[in-house]
Design a protein around this nucleic acid. Structure first.
Length: 890
RNA sequence: GGAUCCAUAGCUCAGUUGGUUAGAGCGUUGCGCUUACAUCGCAAAGGUCAGAGGUUCGAGUCCUCUUGGGUCCACCA
């Protein structure tokens, strides 16, 4: 057997191990021949052109852990990888590249531009794929999907056509969030708000003074709204006036509506239906015309008269100046603060403007189902079919779903799924028919005109993402819809609904909610059983890691070569609970590198140590029975924790067992007792299997090393069965007995430290016991070696040694260390303090045990425990007092 | 404005139906002999669980309020 290196160098092993895993074929559940029960996770697809960041690291770790655990438990485990085309983000990137060449997308045809983007995606997509591999991700690459590939594009088209057929997709002229830089609509949740201090202007508008932060939208305002109960304006309601305004006189009228806030500004406002969501709704209510003042470029339209074609926001000052010259400015509040709405991708201020767009009707009842999309999606969670972890996100989900408005799905972006919508255009002599079809029509079905135009727009990138759990499993081909009864087949039947959706809480609305909507609609079932929402990865300044703050960025691609993927994975797991953010630092990752090295050295010791011994099986000692009993209960707790999604607890429990029990005690005992080859190897195999979902690389390296001599072929640890907790190994008696040995050693070490005995100096140890003599005799060498004892002597029960440190190990075991020195006052004080503390505890218990309400109210096991506690404490006090007497006598 | 979460050791965090003397990692202090590991070992110090009140035999845990911090949603002309 080759020597294992003294320290584990992750970078020397990881790539080769991953390659071997991939070549083994077991990432693909089809090759897990004995597995029956399915387990599946659809990866949250990273942007196809992205690079690995800490956010990815988090989900890759958790999902790989779950997948490996399921696989080892004998499940048909599928983790389906893929990437997202991320329409706006990707298009922006390529536009930036073009800008470097001094070009814009308008310098080429649509097809050329899309071609450029496709090329860019093709050459950069392998980057993220390989980086996913670096984390050890055991996903099935044979099933990898891309949102723009043929199959998924077909699914998108099919979904659009079906929803249109069911009346759930419609085209309408509505006010939308428009990003003048992206030149596209944005969904409500793609708009972010930024606090901003801006002048708030008060203008004289006929008989009233109105307030606004956006004078540039006000050219055509001709409706004044006041609150019906506002005494100031009571007699104005219903009247009409000619008012002098920006570009000359305007005929204005006054209406009363409760929407006007008496407290805000002057209590009077004018309505701008074209550029405010609220005003748009009001305009609908009072049948007011909707005029477009600002166009898609952010410029003023012809309605702005002399200001037409100028940039709207830039013209604000000039407009105010003109009003000032006309003496229409009442006053200006310079300290007004409000939230400016900006594009979440590019931070450009959003212009709400009226536009002809496509929408999904979320409130409309679906004829065959009798329910709306919103109702279907809410029920999936309220019925308990979907569990959201942590639970508190239920409420957030419901409140969002409740307030959801129709979803604008058309985007004026060229990169993405083009909408399957065609127009038989009147301008070209057609009939104006709108055709929605999966296949491009050759002629208009109505007027047979052949000149039909394909809609230029693409779909919101979240539309395709919403289909992800089932489009990746072969929808719609893998479905037979028999009279409204849905029959799945193939992968879709096996793996859908997926078992877990693991993603960040920041995209619960963008993505999670929309997947539920689409799956409930298309398959009448939930897309996943459990949603595990992880927190965000924050840097040392408690800021979300983002590209814009590179100075605090910790790049996983630097961390992996330096500390290893296993260490990085551990730092994503331990101390992390669902829904809570995680601070990451290099120090933390380095700490887990140390831990991985410890695991390596435990293995190294076992493999080298047991190499020298015979194959013979030896009878179990107390330490053996103890450690395997501990192992059994550890296995069962860890298994429960993982099943309950408590990964941090599982890892901590396993670390505690590995480090504090196996390494610090059992291996030390092994050095003394010998003859443990079989036991140690058995322990190591269990440890490797248990650690494998957490730290797959190091465990695999060791495992291969371990079985190399007997098994020349690579059989991965990843298909090793998950250890089961053997109840027969649970041995509470041995656990109690060994804990006495441990306690004895701990107290001896403690006393040595207190009395400044150097480790090199051996001391004597005397003990008194009634029933533990065999226990001490059997484990004498362990006590002597670990306690640095050169003579272990049993005293008769009536002997009272002087000038010796007294240690109370258990009810039945007292230890004296004859350190050849006078008892010190400190020690006396120490014992007195101990007695006082125990006395206090006993007093507390006595108070409880004499309290009638406690006696009647508390359950029986609590009463028993309290009584036992009291007796224990009393016994201890008795011994301590005895000792105090001895000190005093000496 | 609405909702929600957090406040526990110097730091980062666990603590699952209320029930031992509240835990871990890192850091700190002291000591380092060993058949793996100094990326290590042994030992120790360190907390009135933000504050006030309430429910209960019993509260870090449940309720109310206060203070401080975070996040989400809605956004007012």
């Amino acid at each position: 057997m080759n020597e294992l290196a003294k320290t584990y160098e992750a970078s020397q092993h990881e790539d080769a191990i991953y390659h071997a895993w991939e070549a083994s074929g077991f990432f693909n559940p089809d090759n897990l021949s004995r597995a029956k029960e399915p387990f599946s996770i659809a990866i949250p697809p990273p942007n196809a052109t992205g690079t690995l960041h800490m956010g990815h690291t988090m989900f890759l770790t958790l999902q790989d852990l779950m997948t490996r655990f399921a696989r080892m438990r004998g499940k048909k485990a599928l983790w389906l990888p893929g990437t997202d085309h991320a329409s706006i983000a990707t298009q922006n990137k390529v536009e930036k590249l073009l800008a470097k060449e001094g070009k814009t997308r308008h310098d080429m045809s649509r097809d050329e531009f899309v071609g450029r983007i496709d090329d860019y995606v093709a050459q950069s997509r392998s980057t993220i794929r390989n980086q996913i591999r670096k984390m050890g991700s055991s996903c099935d690459w044979s099933r990898e999907r891309y949102t723009l590939d043929v199959g998924l594009s077909h699914a998108v088209t099919e979904m659009f056509v079906r929803m249109y057929g069911d009346g759930l997709i419609y085209r309408g002229n509505r006010i939308v969030n428009w990003c003048p830089r992206c030149k596209s609509t944005l969904a409500d949740d793609e708009v972010k708000y930024r606090p901003e201090k801006t002048p708030f202007y008060y203008f004289k508008y006929g008989p009233v003074v109105i307030g606004t932060a956006r004078p540039e939208t006000k050219f055509l305002d001709k409706t004044i709204v006041v609150h019906p109960d506002d005494g100031r304006y009571k007699e104005l309601v219903g009247k009409e006036f000619d008012v002098e305004w920006i570009e000359g006189p305007i005929r204005a009228h006054v209406i009363a509506d409760a929407i006007a806030d008496k407290e805000f500004g002057t209590g009077a406002m004018t309505i701008t239906p074209g550029h405010s969501f609220e005003d748009f709704e009001l305009a609908g209510k009072y049948h007011l015309p909707v005029e477009k003042i600002i166009d898609e470029n952010g410029n003023l339209t012809e309605h702005a008269g002399s200001f037409a074609l100028r940039n709207a926001r830039d013209s604000r000052a000039a407009i105010v100046k003109k009003l000032q010259e006309k003496n229409l400015v009442d006053h200006v509040d310079e300290n007004y603060e409000h939230n400016l709405s900006v594009c979440y991708r590019c931070d450009t201020p959003v212009e709400p403007l009226p536009s002809l767009q496509w929408f999904i009707a979320v409130n409309k009842k679906i004829e065959k189902r009798g329910k709306s999309l919103k109702e279907l999606a809410s029920e999936a969670v309220s019925s308990g079919r979907i569990t959201i972890l942590p639970k508190r996100f239920d409420k957030i989900y419901f409140s969002w779903m409740n307030g959801l408005r129709d979803w604008c799905i058309s985007r004026q972006i060229v990169f993405g799924h083009r909408m399957p919508v065609y127009y038989c255009e009147k301008e070209q002599g057609g009939c104006g028919e709108v055709i929605v079809s999966g296949e491009p029509p050759t002629e208009c079905a109505k007027c047979k005109h052949t000149n039909v135009r394909h809609d230029e727009d693409t779909l919101d990138t979240w539309f395709s993402a919403a289909l992800w759990t089932f489009s990746t499993l072969g929808w719609p081909e893998n479905v037979e819809d028999k009279n409204g009864k849905i029959k799945k087949k193939g992968d879709l039947a096996t793996f859908h609904p997926t078992t877990v959706m693991e993603t960040g809480y920041d995209i619960i609305f963008f993505w999670v909610a929309r997947m539920i909507i689409m799956s409930e609609y298309a398959l009448h079932e939930e897309p996943f059983k459990t949603v595990y929402l992880h927190g965000l990865v924050l840097d040392e300044n408690r800021k979300k890691m983002s590209k814009s703050r590179e100075e605090t960025q910790i790049d996983p691609l630097d961390m992996i070569p330096q500390y290893g993927a296993d260490a990085l994975r551990m730092s994503m797991l331990v101390g992390v609970t669902p829904g809570n953010d995680l601070f990451i630092s290099k120090e933390k990752i380095a700490g887990y590198r140390n831990f991985v090295n410890k695991l390596w050295n435990v293995s190294r010791f076992i493999l080298q140590f047991s190499h020298d011994e015979s194959e013979k099986k030896h009878p179990l000692t107390l330490a053996d029975r103890w450690i395997f009993s501990r192992l059994a209960s550890t296995i069962s707790r860890i298994t429960n924790h993982i099943e309950a999604f408590q990964f941090s607890r599982a890892a901590e429990e396993l670390r505690r067992f590995t480090w504090d029990e196996v390494a610090d005690w059992y291996l030390e005992v092994a050095k003394i007792e010998k003859n443990k080859r079989q036991h140690l190897l058995r322990m190591l195999e269990h440890l490797l299997a248990l650690w494998h979902p957490f730290t797959p690389f190091v465990t695999e390296v060791v495992y291969q090393h371990m079985r190399k001599t007997t098994h020349p072929h690579f059989i991965s640890l990843m298909i090793h069965s998950w250890p089961s907790a053997d109840k027969k190994m649970i041995d509470e008696k041995s656990e109690r007995a060994f804990s006495i040995v441990q306690e004895m050693i701990r107290q001896i070490r403690n006393a040595r430290q207190e009395h400044a005995i150097p480790p090199s100096q051996k001391i004597q140890c005397w003990f008194q016991t009634k029933n533990s003599e065999t226990l001490i005799a059997d484990n004498a060498e362990i006590v002597m070696r670990l306690g640095r004892i050169d003579m272990l002597k049993k005293l008769e029960s009536d002997e009272k040694p002087h000038n010796a440190v007294f240690l109370k190990i258990s009810d039945d075991l007292d230890v004296y260390l004859p350190l050849g020195m006078k008892p010190r006052e400190e020690e006396r004080g120490f014992i007195e303090k101990e007695i006082a503390m125990l006395g206090g505890l006993i007093q507390d218990i006595n108070q409880r045990l004499t309290n009638n309400e406690f006696l009647t109210g508390a359950p029986k096991h609590i009463l028993e425990a309290e009584t036992k506690k009291r007796n224990d404490y009393l016994g201890k006090i008795e011994k301590l007092e005895e000792q105090l007497k001895k000190i005093s006598n000496s």
